[in-house]
Computed example of a mutant assay.
Amino acid sequence: MRDTLLGLSWHQIMLWACIFFGSLYWGMGALNQLITHHLMPALGHGRTLDPRPLGPGQQAREQTQSALSVLLFGVGSVVPWSFLQWGWARLAVNPSGWQIALEVAVLVVWNEVHFYANHWLLHTRWLRRFHLLHHRSVVVTPWSTYCFHPVEALMLGNVLLLPMLLHDFSVWALLSVPVFSIVFNNIGHSNFDFLPDADRDRWWLNGARRHHLHHACYHGNFGFMFPFMDRLFGTALPPDAAQAQIARHGRKP
């Protein structure tokens, strides 16, 4: 796999990366809807977090904008590939299973830190105009996951560059980042409470609850999937933060 990746041309890298990111986005989105709209309700488990209706044309807008993000991620993959070609970064040779597992764990934590920092910046007055496109989805869907302004897509999409300059990662660890990222992102944008017990808010699957609150309230809960960054910097929202907004919708005739 390592030699195959290094042997590709720049246009092959971009083509295969576009296919890779597109398959992740549309495949995981379809799987998410199957689970949250059919399987889980049939089992009588979980609940919808925000019952308010979607905005007009929301899902079509999300998928159209996400297609642009897929294109940007695909074209942008030539940057880390160039790091390897120029010798700025290297891939591990014959890594052990334990090394790959440890690298994936490190990248999961780094992804959380990187996302929190960039997400917080996107809520500052200098950059929030680029983030408002994503926040047009007040009630989230699985198709919201890549619905970014190009500036936001570039900010979030550079997550691998610094780690690659600091360590020789295995190709499998690097490829795991967009995979676990889309899985976590789909959970966060599922609008479905997989663990409705309020006392278990620390569970990672309750990232759906935390991110639903972020979209409903706009500020707070800047973390990606785990709560540790929000708790560290005091930006965590209480579990009932969106209760008033949802209740107002329920009182409408």
Rank of each mutant, 00 (worst) to 15 (best):
P163H: 05
G157R: 03
Y146H: 13
I182Q: 03
N158C: 13
L160Q: 02
P150D: 00
H135N: 13
N158A: 14
Y146K: 10
L175I: 14
L161W: 09
H149N: 12
F169I: 08
D168C: 11
M155H: 01
H167D: 09
V183I: 15
M155V: 01
G157C: 04
A173W: 02
L175W: 14
V139C: 03
T145V: 14
V151I: 03
P142F: 13
D168N: 14
P142A: 07
V159G: 05
Y146W: 14
A173M: 11
V151E: 01
M155L: 15
V139G: 02
N158F: 10
F148I: 05
L160P: 04
P178V: 08
L160E: 01
V171R: 03
I182F: 14
T141S: 13
Y146E: 11
M164V: 04
H134G: 10
G157Q: 07
W143R: 04
L165F: 05
M155A: 09
R136D: 14
E152T: 09
A173Q: 05
V140A: 00
T145A: 14
S170A: 10
W172Q: 04
L154V: 06
M164P: 00
L165V: 01
V159E: 04
H149K: 05
L133Y: 06
P142G: 04
M155F: 10
F180Q: 10
A153D: 13
R136I: 07
T145C: 12
H135T: 10
H134L: 14
V183D: 07
